[in-house]
Design a binder for these strands. Sequence first.
RNA 1: GGGUCGGUGGCAGAGCGGUCAAAUGCAUGAGACUGUAAAUCUCACGCCUCACGGCUACGUAGGUUCGAAUCCUACCCGGCCCA
Length: 388
Amino acid sequence: MKNFRIIKQSKLSQARLGVITTAHGKIQTPFFMPDATRAAVKGLSMNDLKMLGLPAMVINTYHLYLQPGIDLMKKSQGAHHFMNWPKPLLSDSGGYQVYSLIHKNSSFGKITDEKVIFKSPLDGSRHEFTPEKSIQIQFDLGADMIVCLDDCPPNSLSAEKMRLSIKRTVSWAKRCRQEYDRQIRKRNLDNNKPMLFGVIQGGTDLAMRKWCAEELIKISSPGGQGFDGYGYGARPVDGDGKFLAAVLQHTAEQIPADKLRFGLGIGLPEDIARCARMGWDMFDCVIPTREGRHGKLFFWKTNSKSNFLNSQNFYNTINITNAKFKQDLSPINEHSNIPELREHSKAYLHHLLKIQESLGYRLASLNNLEFYLDLMKKIRQAIDNDKL
RNA sequence: GGGUCGGUGGCAGAGCGGUCAAAUGCAUGAGACUGUAAAUCUCACGCCUCACGGCUACGUAGGUUCGAAUCCUACCCGGCCCA
């Protein structure tokens, strides 16, 4: 059974339309997932997310392992039941925490070729993550799409260290693949396999990205060669925040066309549009929710051209906490399909965020997620019409 | 009326002779945020100047001192206690 099927290839670019089939329903690609790292999209209820038509979300192995713990996940028969979320889930491996905690600050742990030693930011306790353990936990979480534990390096790493890091990521991917096969047998999941993703590292160096991709694709098992999909790992921007378009383009080209391409942590709306054009199929990012909580709202510009997604500036942002919105009684978003965003004023949302009221976080997150989901829909339509 | 403690920047509140345009918190203003240690972080925050620097300021008015938010005197205002 093949769980990713390409439906249409754009005549204009590498962009494609597809469908993923999971045990919790189908997903049309390209698509975007918000991050529900600790089993919640901050500020939003599952009903909110259903109302938005959210296709899937990303939960995190490391965070859920620390809190509330995997025993409870097993007892709840997985994250879907625990969260009461009926649609697909993707669990991230904890590889990003190798970067965000340890690479950035070595007092948070240590990386060896064998495993990662984390010191919990919650209470300082010591925890070991092996590739095998990450996969086991992800099976316990019961996610529909799971990710190999990787060593996510800073882009600034020296060439020599980057080479070692990639070797580690590849060796861990092998071990993840073996553990995955073991779990499938052990749990009798032959007809209900989660999809497994490898993560391509290599910083900003095209040759390193290519090498990492090739090594990952070579990994084989009785279950087949390579992975169901491949992710782009590490920050997609340089030190100045400039999008690494050439690296994304080159990395996409290394991934076999019939495999899913997952841009981890991407990104800004224009970056997602560009990546879709390169043939990337799935995205996740904290931007819409985090920046919403911090007051930044995304809005469509009124565009008449049908190929507006190819332009640089197809949207506006405002910072609703700016003083100029204090007295602005106009709707938060008059074009929204969400009644609350049409009926509440900007002044009200300004006020809610100023007093740190959770309703403010919710309204801002709703606005931005609606924008992102709309963006993905427009991208899919554009591909369908050969406009992207 | 008597006693007592106190009056500091938008607010709260340190400071108690020089290193004070004055700690800290809040509020305010702006910015950042890309597989969420993020309801977080950064910067600004008396006035003038891009800046060097200058000016005005710790209730009011005097005084002591080389020098006062800090000491003294009077007055004004507030809290508490007594009558």
